[in-house]
């Protein structure tokens, strides 16, 4: 009942702001730590010295889980004031578009649908245009940047620096 009461307390007390970021991060850490502990049980026992391959992952993951639980406890019971107002609009929508474009870019490279230079040119064009909210005046610049980066980097890295590209 206590956690429920605390959550209700948060929802009704306007002087507090629920630290969602803390909870997501702590939950991620608990899942990550638990998976490591489970995986470490299948490791062979120590042979050359008494510690062995499993001990370090187990200690670290256990500490990780304890610390994550402390973060969750603090998030629920701590005093939080309302977040400071920012003078500008936070563009989470653009961040999401950026991540989706990156995933599309990597997928195109992975599936070898396009060569590096054209995949890069496409990615740079779409991302630059998105970051400028598709303003018509910026599209020629986005196109120029896309071609320079796509073709220029391909040439620089393969012909001058002799590095392999995806």
């Amino acid at each position: 009942m206590l956690p429920l009461a605390l959550v209700l307390d948060f929802m009704t007390d306007l002087s507090k702001k629920f630290p969602v970021g803390d909870l997501i991060f702590a939950a991620f850490m608990i899942v990550f730590g638990t998976s490591f502990i489970v995986a470490s049980f299948s490791l062979p026992p120590p042979a050359l010295e008494p510690v062995g391959p499993a001990a370090f992952p187990q200690w670290v993951s256990a500490i990780q889980i304890v610390l994550a639980l402390i973060v969750i406890w603090r998030a629920i019971t701590g005093e939080y004031k309302l977040a400071k107002r920012v003078e500008y609009r936070k563009r989470y929508d653009l961040a999401l578009v950026t991540i989706l474009l990156i995933i599309a870019y990597f997928s195109v490279l992975q599936l070898e649908w396009l060569s590096f230079q054209w995949a890069t040119a496409g990615f740079v064009f779409f991302l630059t245009a998105s970051l400028f909210d598709w303003k018509y005046s910026k599209l020629p610049i986005a196109l120029g940047l896309a071609l320079i980066l796509g073709l220029g980097l391909k040439f620089t890295f393969t012909e001058i620096l002799y590095l392999d590209l995806p």
Partner: peptide, 24 residues
């Protein structure tokens, strides 16, 4: 500390540096 622990955990994936076996 939590951030540091995550870094440590991530570094442990792959080859165990003492025995040479695979882990995690």
């Amino acid at each position: 500390l939590l951030s540091g622990m995550l870094g440590i955990a991530v570094s442990m994936v792959g080859v165990d540096p003492a025995s040479g076996g695979l882990r995690l």
